[in-house]
Design a protein around this nucleic acid. Sequence first.
DNA 1: GTCTATATTAGGATAGAC
DNA 2: GTCTATCCTAATATAGAC
Lengths: 213, 213
Amino acid sequence: MKTKDRILQYSLQLFNEEGEQNVTPVDIANVLDISPGNLYYHFKGKDPIIHQLFVDFEEEFRMVLTAPIDKPLELSDNWVYFYILFEEIADFRFFYRNLQSILERYPDLQSRFRRLVQHKVTTMASIIGTLDRTGFISISQIEADQMAERFALQLTYWPTYQVLLDSDVSTPVSIHNGVYGLISQLTPYVVDGGDEFLTLLTEFRDKMLKTSK
Amino acid sequence: MKTKDRILQYSLQLFNEEGEQNVTPVDIANVLDISPGNLYYHFKGKDPIIHQLFVDFEEEFRMVLTAPIDKPLELSDNWVYFYILFEEIADFRFFYRNLQSILERYPDLQSRFRRLVQHKVTTMASIIGTLDRTGFISISQIEADQMAERFALQLTYWPTYQVLLDSDVSTPVSIHNGVYGLISQLTPYVVDGGDEFLTLLTEFRDKMLKTSK
DNA sequence: GTCTATATTAGGATAGAC
DNA sequence: GTCTATCCTAATATAGAC
């Protein structure tokens, strides 16, 4: 593996574990067992490393976000879809730990991240719209818009919020609960019996939690 | 006004405007037109200042959170209640800008903040419970719990999320939209006609937006 | 309580040899 | 591509006079 790639890989790991602010270029060099000078040969400091890591994240996240869901009404498919989205965020969690301050330091990331969030909103709106058109749920336009916004917010801050509440949070459990929190909002709008839907959903979550334990 | 209080006041302002990380003790001293040495006489650096500012925030927020709502079914009262909660957060927004990293730096703030969030959850659960018991809404226990969690999350991250989407966001407008986003979630559970409730709520929001413009 | 002057340190960055 | 050695800078902190 090339030194440049190793730098990216271990930087991501260090950033996630220690927090980007607590990692110095020298730290990265030490973990890789190379000299600081060598690090600077490949990247002119932390900034370009972070930039590249964001580009990687952006690409992966967009890919997952736009992945066509074949059976939008199949619970397990939707579950996996949201699960993977949360997982992407977990993989690059250093970025969310200090979202504001990182984006302020790298203005061009700011607008890219903003577009990414907007992409989330439109994708969520489209999913909710499909559920409505196919007759699975029945929802007013205003409520659908609000729900799409809410989904996007939860898809941004849920993992961070979990860490806030419990630092030692086991990731899969936390993600499954996040997915449940998202999907369960559909309950009152489900045409064919909300109660039944919620029961099914809760059973499904418990099954997933048991599996990941 | 005592120097110690002036330090707190201007530190808060600087932190909010520039971001805590971008403000040095010397910056604070300069704004106050005092010497760095004098600043260190009152506070041993930025850490104790931040600590004191958090204590102030915590106290104010708890006070607002537990303020008894006399008429929990009166729309305008509820609106103001949530509005003020968001406003508190806006007043100490520097804290939320780097929530994770600040809490990691000050471990005792971490547990205090966690308790504050839990307080939010229980308060929201209690409000939703009251609405259910008084017959304004009808909601299952599971959904009520999920909604309380969601309210707490939104009551933590909505202002941050707004800044993420639009740095120049005019605060009162953004807050009103946040309150709308919270309360409108009740719609499908309103016993006495959700459509009517949503219409009323939307009109109310537009009135508030016009007033604050 | 407040100032001036100074010290300490750590993060970030580069030059030049190999 | 990689290393060693070194430098620059900015943030943080203190001593001692007034």
